[in-house]
Simulated scan of single mutants.
Amino acid sequence: MCSPQESSMNAVGVRMVTRSRSRGPATGQQGSREKPAPLRREEAAAEGRKSYSPVKRQRKAQRLNVAYEASEGEKGEGAEHLQSPAWEPQDWRQQLENIRAMRSGKDAPVDQLGAEHCYDLSAPPKVRRYQVLLSLMLSSQTKDQVTAGAMQRLRAQGLTVDSILQMDDSTLGTLIYPVGFWRNKVKYIKQTSAILQQRYDGDIPASLAELVALPGVGPKMAHLAMAVAWGTVSGIAVDTHVHRIVNRLRWTKKATKSPEETRRALEEWLPRELWSEINGLLVGFGQQTCLPLRPRCQACLNQALCPAAHGL
């Protein structure tokens, strides 16, 4: 039964409600290991409410976060969800369109030598997925050109889980050199390959949590593996390029200190339909224009819109 106050508010067609929102990045979805890997980069909020009643004496006014719903005549039956403008960076849509325009040529190293281009197209799906994961493991702290060269040498030897496990550490090290931290990567590749053989029949896991649990596989690699190998958008892959550019454009509420912190902040507001695009777009932009040192601001369409442009 409605209180007098509630009846009065319904009469004028609005309702005051407190609101509780929760939102966060989606977790990886379990994929079937039997389906052919798409090997392409492509994939809400619970609303709570509570009412309150007036009290005769209230010593201290209670501050409420309020929003207004349309009256029952303006909405369908059972439409309970409130939508309020979430935080988003100023001018981000125009900045994104400008970056797309600058990247329209698709001629950055990542466009020809990224993880989507390092596997053997003629190999069975399971082997292709393994090669995608290995290329991502090699790519950490390494330029795409160097990673692609290492993958080419490995594939010439027959790049499968079994061939890697049969290869001695010295030979593997020679084949992947000079990728960054190649000695550690020899160890991680051997450990991960053994796990894949023992637990996954030589395939790679189809969930984000299982991928991150593998030796030498970080969040960025896992998100890219989910996208490229399994066709599942599990989150935004953030590397040093994406981390740098997002902070220069002020695409987070406050400056972030690590790629993983940047990923969480970016996923809070960036529409999910853009998650699969943003990594390749910004990585190539960082390779060609928004360089770590001496960025080419004069040639950037975002020069007037970039908060960091005048300070660089």
Score class of each variant (00 low, 15 high):
4 P>H: 09
14 V>E: 04
14 V>F: 14
18 T>M: 08
31 G>E: 06
35 K>R: 13
53 S>K: 11
56 K>H: 06
58 Q>P: 01
62 Q>A: 08
63 R>W: 08
65 N>I: 08
69 E>H: 07
71 S>C: 12
86 A>T: 11
89 P>K: 11
92 W>I: 12
102 M>W: 02
110 V>A: 09
113 L>T: 03
115 A>N: 00
118 C>Y: 00
122 S>N: 13
129 R>V: 12
133 L>G: 05
139 S>A: 15
141 Q>L: 02
147 T>Y: 11
155 R>I: 10
156 A>V: 04
157 Q>G: 00
180 G>Y: 10
180 G>T: 11
183 R>S: 15
187 K>E: 15
192 T>Y: 07
195 I>Y: 08
195 I>E: 14
196 L>K: 06
198 Q>D: 15
199 R>Y: 09
202 G>C: 11
205 P>I: 07
211 L>V: 06
212 V>D: 04
215 P>C: 12
223 H>D: 13
229 A>D: 06
230 W>N: 05
234 S>T: 12
236 I>T: 00
242 V>M: 02
245 I>Y: 01
246 V>S: 15
248 R>L: 09
255 A>L: 14
265 A>L: 04
267 E>G: 07
278 I>F: 01
279 N>F: 01
282 L>R: 00
286 G>M: 08
288 Q>V: 13
290 C>D: 08
290 C>W: 00
304 A>S: 14
307 P>H: 10
308 A>S: 15
309 A>T: 04
312 L>I: 02
